[in-house]
Amino acid sequence: MLRTLVALAGVLLLPACGEGRQSVLNPSGRDALLLYDLALVMFVGALVLWLLVGGLFVYVTRINPREMSRGLAEGLIVGGGVLFPVVLLGGLLVYSLPLMQAPREAGEGMRVHITAEQWWWRVEYELPDGSRVTSANELRLPVGQRTGLVLNAHRVIHAFWVPALGGKADMIPGRETYLSFLPESAGTYRGQCAEFCGASHALMAFETVVMEPEDFEAWLAAEARDATPPQTQEATRGAQVFAREGCGSCHTVRGTQAVGQVGPDLTHMGSRVSLGAGILGVTPPDFANWIAHTETLKPEVAMPSYDHLSPDDLTALAAYLGGLQ
């Protein structure tokens, strides 16, 4: 009942957040639910306290403004001013502190290493044998399993936050921080960098795709494979443009000559759900737009705008990248 009310208020206040894909009011993981309940308890507790203190104030100044007996006044100060807050705050601490443990535990499931760059996410899935599958700007998780997230950053501080799935954690250069998620329903949830990290901080988002475990296994197996060679004539030409323009000095496309590490791994770019760290879709026009206007779309980005490329070259590149399934 309360939950519904608060959610309703949230929906009314935040109509722009579309189906709660990036909302703490739409908890879709064990950890987000925990935080949601915690926030609810604290909020209702604060409300009760506020009404109590306000009511008392009105009572002694308006309703019954008589001089109090010494005993009553002393009792109020010692009881209401010392004992009550100490016991209440102590109770809240004892209730909330143990709850903070689970979201930080490693979990029995997989581990994913996420490194924040300016302004995108390097994502590496650790396989049981210790090897890693590299991806970027998208996190895929199996539903119903606790996946550990090992967070790090390159050069400046960022923060990792997927509101619908769990808490927030700072990402600090040279220091690993941890978070873990236990998603409870399949779906796509938006994450956002939550610590100012430079000019394009606001444009540093990503999608988290929560999948059924068997779908996830299939996806991970596909992600681990090298890139599919171009299937069409257009895409083949795109691969040539990619090589000619030197894109491979910054990007890796596994199974090709492209082994750059400066930008996101593009091996399976075509199977992702967003482009440029969550700011564009993955249709051919999106690819062309991104490649030709990178610096307009993302101020101070490390990738140059390839606005000298002909529309034909851009279309070919888009076909190549879209075909990297």
Binding site: V82, V86, L93, L97
Partner: peptide
């Protein structure tokens, strides 16, 4: 002494209730 008692108790609570460094 009263405030110190409260301070010491609250400082210890996280260590006693959270069993991890993370």
């Amino acid at each position: 002494a009263v405030i110190s008692f409260i301070g010491v108790s609250y400082v210890a609570l996280p260590a006693l209730l959270i069993g991890t460094c993370r």
